[in-house]
Design a protein around this nucleic acid. Structure first.
Lengths: 186, 186
DNA sequence: TATTGTTATACTCTATAACTATA
DNA sequence: TATAGTTATAGAGTATAACAATA
């Protein structure tokens, strides 16, 4: 089955018009414009569709939070610090699957913007205790509302019944295929 | 509800031991090691879980196709050329949501590896007709088998009933939230 | 004037190696 | 010896602006 009708993940503007059988030898002539491209196996690949969907959702996130100038990853780090005041960078690293080496600049940024701070830990002078500043807490309380709005848009797009099924499915993929490499094991 | 038991997307090694209520003031002391981190809202965010799952699936793809030294994006481009011999770069661009400007180096690479070639189009001397070489076709026939194996692993991880539901859900997200910006519209 | 491919550039995310200071 | 944070660096992926050749 060569897949044309079922229509793949490409701009709606490209898909709307009509599909055109690309069977044997439609090679050379694309003059009439708006040719339907056959991306056959891709719309049946979990990874491909997952990727396209994730990009669409992230784009929606950034658009919704534009006035806060925040990226999904930054929001995740802030949320983890908010829920676990005093935790170490390595904890954030393992919790979110971000390498500790890549977390440094991220925390730097949040510190520069005045949202988080690194506090010395007397018991272990190698590490820092991460906390939100008052400004950071205020920022998050406003941001959460926006992210919730974004989330509602996504869930609306998904449809009622699908919502409760998607998250467990994702969790199964993560658990089974091996979670993100936090650090260690090359 | 603060979410602890439901257990989020983090390395299984971190999750297995036991969850620890992080309610009021568990701030300073993380000495006992292996502390459960509360990433509260994140496992309920579609975008976050989508991202973690997509990374896991892509990682599995790369692992499965290690001997071919191929990335998901490269495979996608090769597949589109294979199914639409003679198409232009701009067609690949719109079909896969890759900016035409970023596609250049990608095609360059596939050409350097001898898998694809750019043929001049007499009718439109601005564009090239993309084709797989004989080597590229042979490569793809072997690669498809490997990607199919990867796909089976992913679908096994997902579980029987979930498989048929996931793809339509992804398609709905892509369609509704706006597809990937191919080019144009800033 | 618009389209196709291209270059240059930049920013984000991810990845590895190696260093430091502590433990 | 191992751990926490850091630096430097490199590679993908994505983004914009501007240009040449052609339509």
């Amino acid at each position: 089955m060569t897949r044309r009708a079922t229509i793949p993940a490409q701009p709606a503007s490209e898909r709307s018009p009509r599909a055109r059988p690309g069977g044997g030898k439609n090679s050379g002539r694309n003059d009439r414009k708006n040719v339907a491209i056959d991306i056959s196996p891709l719309p049946d690949r979990i990874g491909y569709m997952l990727r396209r969907a994730q990009l669409a959702v992230f784009k929606n996130f950034v658009r919704c939070c534009a006035e806060f100038d925040i990226r999904p990853g930054q929001y995740a780090v802030l949320a983890v610090i908010e829920n676990n005041p005093g935790l170490k960078q390595i904890d954030v690293s393992t919790a979110l699957g971000i390498k500790r080496t890549n977390l440094v600049a991220l925390i730097d940024l949040l510190e520069q913007r005045g949202f988080a701070r690194r506090e010395p830990v007397p018991a272990d002078r190698r590490s820092y205790a991460l906390h939100l500043t008052a400004k950071g807490k205020a920022f998050m309380s406003k941001l959460h509302a926006r992210v919730d709005a974004h989330e509602r848009q996504v869930r609306t797009a998904l449809g009622e019944d699908a919502r409760d099924q998607l998250l467990p499915m994702m969790q199964r993929l993560i658990d089974t295929l091996g979670p993100a490499s936090t650090d260690d094991e090359p």
